[in-house]
Amino acid sequence: MAVDQSLIGREFAPTRAYAVSVEKVREFIAATAGPKAAQDYAGGSAPATFPIVVAFDAMFAFLDAEGIDLFRIVHGDQKFTYERPILPGDVLTATLSVASLRQIGGADIIGTRSEIRDASGDLVCTTAATLLHRGGDG
């Protein structure tokens, strides 16, 4: 099933505010850098890929709204551009828009862009992701 072409350019509602905590960052560090690094973490900058936690909230909401099965999605590419590091105490929201959409060999190639902003509305990080959707039978 092809994804609706009218999605291009559409911006979705911001995600629910996400409060960054020391423990959540430590858990993320444990998962990507191991237990020693997690133990040493003293509450500073979150790892560079941490904003994906907030960006995925936006992506899951988008997939859900469009009736796209998560298991048919493979991540094609990902880019982060940072205005500043993310710190515990930040309250973040992500706003996703669909930048491009094309079909190749029965798969949808969905280009998304999310802006992650803090409680003051200042831009913290921009993420761009390409999602490959294998349509399957329905």
């Binding site: 790892p47 590419d77 982060f80 590091p85």
Partner: peptide, 24 residues
């Protein structure tokens, strides 16, 4: 990509990352 970020952190003594990207 998280492992990449970790490697960069180790190489640079946790320098501030301005940009990070890749294709899968």
């Amino acid at each position: 990509m998280g492992l990449v970020a970790r490697a960069v952190e180790v190489w640079t003594d946790a320098a501030e990352v301005v940009e990070l990207g890749c294709r899968f």
